[in-house]
Design a protein around this nucleic acid. Structure first.
Lengths: 220, 220
DNA sequence: CTGTTATTCAATAACTTTGTTGAATAGTAT
DNA sequence: ATACTATTCAACAAAGTTATTGAATAACAG
């Protein structure tokens, strides 16, 4: 078959390899974690709930396909995404999936929308409200992800600590909570929790990486 | 394992399914063909070199993952991409692969650059030169793809007919050839052939779908 | 109703992917 | 050199993917 050995098919095989690397939910999760900042295998295993060996195996797939790169730092190997284009690719993949896969709508309706019947705050809306005193930004990611980068003026209270640290949120302003990405459960749950306590709260449509990718200001 | 049944993992599984659908070179080829316009299974099998059954099988994967949709028209089932966002996703995938997979560079060096040592004409450069009489646009795709849509003023001469139809190309202007996408062999070979005949020729960086996606004018 | 055309399905074999288990490797501290 | 920590590797079983083959299905013409 002449087509089999064509240079174009060879190139398509390489492109397909990249897509295949994205074709596993655990690897998508790992990439979303890497989107928050560089991280060790141990840290990724802990955050993802995978075994060490399995985490390492998936990271090899990501590294070999070019989506992630690694460097040694003492005993630790630190992984990160290979470039912002990988985050753009992830965003495009999510957008296409959200638009054409009905099951995603069903899952959103069945879980997330029960908890957040209000529309999320869009990036543009938030940009317009920064600085006018009407919004308190709440980052519910773990502290090390917050430290790697966060939205300007955001307060970091991981979800587990939210109930007992409510006093740290200024009175009056609406709370806008954000997390790792558009499907991160933590922001949804933070909003639900805040509303139970009588606070006005919504979640941000984006996670931190999407905000940064849009060229918007970030703090470290 | 609590993570296994989480709604987020369920959503990631759906997103992974879309990526998996892209994880096969034949399906990428089929999507590039669909990017040129709606087409029957028979037509896709002929253009791709796959068997009918195998073509149909791959199309089921594309349809179930939401990347393509189909409609019956008499005996024929016509497939098309489900939206322009699918083409944007393909572009993002190619971009990431080209940037991070060294084998793609090697393949490009080994085959394509032997035939086109000049840089391709960028979209912006072409936009600037349309209408000034310095460029002849040559579309080397099959006539049915040309008919579905082409760059303004482009002449359609499929590669196989180029040698004997050289007289149809106006004298003096540089020929810019384009095809289905950035890795389509036909544009490369057209440029090589034209240069052998003493004509000034380069290829366009984009294929027709990328041009249209950029909002640039198209003719039908 | 029958025959033709176009397409899809089911079953199969071969290959690939995934997660686990236990071993091997690399870097560091003593 | 030895022990410890972090990571990766190899082998394996189970599940999934791919291409092929032959059958089944849907639409149309006569």
């Amino acid at each position: 078959m002449a087509a089999k050995s064509s240079p174009k098919l060879s190139i398509l095989e390489q492109i397909a390899m990249v897509a295949k690397a994205l074709g596993n939910p655990h690897r998508l999760d790992l990439l979303e974690l890497l989107a928050q900042g560089e991280r060790s295998v141990e840290g990724l295993a802990a955050a993802s709930g995978l075994s060490f060996a399995n985490t390492s195996q998936h990271l090899q797939v990501l590294r070999r396909s070019g989506l992630a790169v690694s460097r040694r730092s003492g005993l630790h190997v630190l992984y990160r995404t290979s470039g912002d284009d990988v985050l753009e690719l992830l965003a495009a993949l999510r957008r296409t999936a959200a638009r054409h896969v009905e099951e995603i709508d069903r899952l959103m309706q069945g879980f997330f929308h029960q908890r957040d019947a209000l529309e999320p705050v869009s990036r543009d809306e938030l940009v317009g409200r920064l600085g006018d005193g009407t919004v308190t930004l709440l980052d519910v990611r773990p502290p090390e992800e917050y430290a790697a980068g966060h939205l300007p003026g955001a307060i970091n209270i991981p979800l587990k600590e939210l109930q007992r640290r409510l006093g740290e949120l200024p009175d009056g302003a609406e709370v806008v909570a954000y997390c790792r990405g558009p499907y991160c459960v933590l922001a949804f749950e933070a909003v639900a929790s805040l509303r139970e306590c009588g606070r006005a709260a919504r979640r941000l449509q984006d996670g931190f990486p999407e905000w940064r990718l849009a060229g918007l200001p970030v703090e470290t």
